[in-house]
Amino acid sequence: MENLTNFLLSANVWLIAKFFVLLAFFVYACFAFILVRQVSMMIEVVVTNLGSLIKMISIGLLIVAIAAFIAMILFL
């Protein structure tokens, strides 16, 4: 217990913050991936002229999410 308390007190607060920020961006990237799957399913069920555009937007969002996650790993 004492060791754990010492570890928590000595831990760098920004290291913990970095961990949570990276976790948040990772979760967002997973969400963006699920969003791409969701859009694929939706455009199969209801076929419209805008289907391919909406799919491209969802893929764009996934690319931005992954890029943001990598950027956070590199720059934080």
Partner: peptide, 27 residues
Amino acid sequence: KYQLAVFIGWYLLLAAFVFEKFLSWFF
């Protein structure tokens, strides 16, 4: 750099919110 992370995270969340609402309406 953490201010920037908050800034980027905010707009990513906003994009997801708007896109999800639009998809829900459109489909």
